[in-house]
């Protein structure tokens, strides 16, 4: 028999075992790390048609998020501002800037600026912005420190476990409602538990809370 199976084949089962275990573990580690929104979505930073800087507008100028995203506390959908909103100031401020050509064209023609959507939940998820920002949940929890971003990127995973983290323990995230757009707010002694109780915050955890 030794003519057919050379001696090293005696170790074949061991080799296969080692190789299988190492490759198996590597695959599990790889999938755990990569096949999750923490990898697939986080960091998405598409090139936008207009180089709008949240760092300048929200941080340096101190404008409130709702100046532009004015539907966020009234509607489930947080709107991208129309170009007329930009023109409220930019009809005078930097009115000849090349960077704003597209905004002026859009304002004149009525054709929207083709902004690229970054944050998008699947179509079977029904997220309501107004419900959150009217109950002390700040923009920063889902969108990251937008006010520091020259160019917006996807900062949080927005996965289901991400949502549930807060739905299970809202007291860790809730803040005084008038400070939801103060993105750099630090909790110094605000009693989240009391707020959750007093404002009757009852974030659902059943499927139909978000899925319909």
């Amino acid at each position: 028999m030794s003519d057919i199976f050379p001696k090293w084949t005696n170790q074949l089962p061991l080799m296969a075992g080692v190789a299988g275990a190492v490759l198996g573990l590597t695959a599990v580690a790889g999938i755990t790390y990569f096949v999750t929104p923490k990898y697939t979505r986080v960091g998405y930073q598409p090139k936008q048609p207009v180089a709008f800087s949240h760092a300048i507008h929200a941080d340096q100028l101190g404008m409130d998020c709702r100046y532009c995203h004015d539907d966020v506390d009234k509607s489930w959908f947080s709107n991208i501002p129309s170009s007329s909103t930009c023109m409220n100031c930019h009809s005078q401020v930097k009115k000849d800037s090349d960077k704003l050509q597209l905004v002026r064209d859009s304002y004149a023609s009525g054709k929207p600026i083709p902004w690229v959507q970054i944050h998008k939940v699947p179509d079977y998820v029904y997220f309501n912005h107004s419900v959150h920002v009217n109950r002390g949940i700040s923009c920063v929890h889902c969108h990251g420190e937008i006010q520091k971003m020259e160019e917006v990127y996807h900062a949080e995973s927005l996965s289901m476990s991400f949502c549930l983290e807060c739905h299970r323990e809202p007291e860790k995230f809730i803040r005084p409602n008038e400070l939801v757009t103060k993105l750099d707010w630090k909790n110094e002694g605000f009693d989240g538990k009391k707020a959750v109780h007093d404002w009757k915050v009852q974030p659902g955890q059943s499927c139909s809370t978000c899925h319909r």
Binding site: Y33, K38, Y39, V42, G43, Y44, Q45, P46, K47, Y153
Partner: peptide, 8 residues
């Protein structure tokens, strides 16, 4: 994780 990318 978290590195920025232009790709969707």
């Amino acid at each position: 994780r978290g590195s920025t990318s232009r790709k969707p």
